[in-house]
Design a protein around this nucleic acid. Sequence first.
DNA 1: GTCAGATACATTAGATTCTTATGTATCTTT
DNA 2: AAAGATACATAAGAATCTAATGTATCTGAC
Lengths: 113, 113
Amino acid sequence: MIYSTELLKGTLKTIVLKLLADNKKMYGYEITQRVKELTLDKIQITEGALYPTLHALESDGLVTTETEFIGKRVRKYYSLSPSGKNKTKEKVSELADFMDTMKFLLDIKPKTA
Amino acid sequence: MIYSTELLKGTLKTIVLKLLADNKKMYGYEITQRVKELTLDKIQITEGALYPTLHALESDGLVTTETEFIGKRVRKYYSLSPSGKNKTKEKVSELADFMDTMKFLLDIKPKTA
DNA sequence: GTCAGATACATTAGATTCTTATGTATCTTT
DNA sequence: AAAGATACATAAGAATCTAATGTATCTGAC
């Protein structure tokens, strides 16, 4: 199963932040591959979604970047800033809370027969 | 806590379908109030989001409607069609699966120290 | 009896966030 | 030499929400 695309909406930023919190520094392509691998291909982050997200995180001051050259090819590493670490905790706990709420909502029993 | 709005995206249709599956028939305003009540105000469905969603479900043949008059005021009840019932099962199980995947993803441990 | 707040429908402009497509360039494997 | 993987990026369009606005009726408090 590959999830219908609208489910990912709103969770991408949190996923990226959490991965950076766990891995110190990562680059864009690596993030797409890691997510694909960890979710057994169920979640595939497209580059058109990822790069704008990374740029937004950077302009919000949540991540910092450093560029490396692998041969002649550029590789741009992203790391959490201090405020990014705080934001990650917020977003992860918000999402966890939201998922609990949703689980409850999807298990509710009838009120009217 | 009230969830940041982007989280709701993609889950609204599923919430509505599930409520209809559990309650046979409901009207729009009732749905907003029920969700608000069940989630202790954490999720508040706006009318601007709900009504277009209900109309879309209807034009997709997933729900049927019947109009009632309460005094002079119109009340429009929505009920699941047979295909709506199948769709509900699909969407609920997809969302449940997605949430499991997300929980795993948000709990992952570092790969690189 | 009137006025505020709740009930109940609906639409629209604008924001956000994604997909799909496209572009550029390098590296690796056959 | 060519195909596929690696690696960055942008842009047009679709989808889905918020916030604002509109209309109208009902109810309870003063």
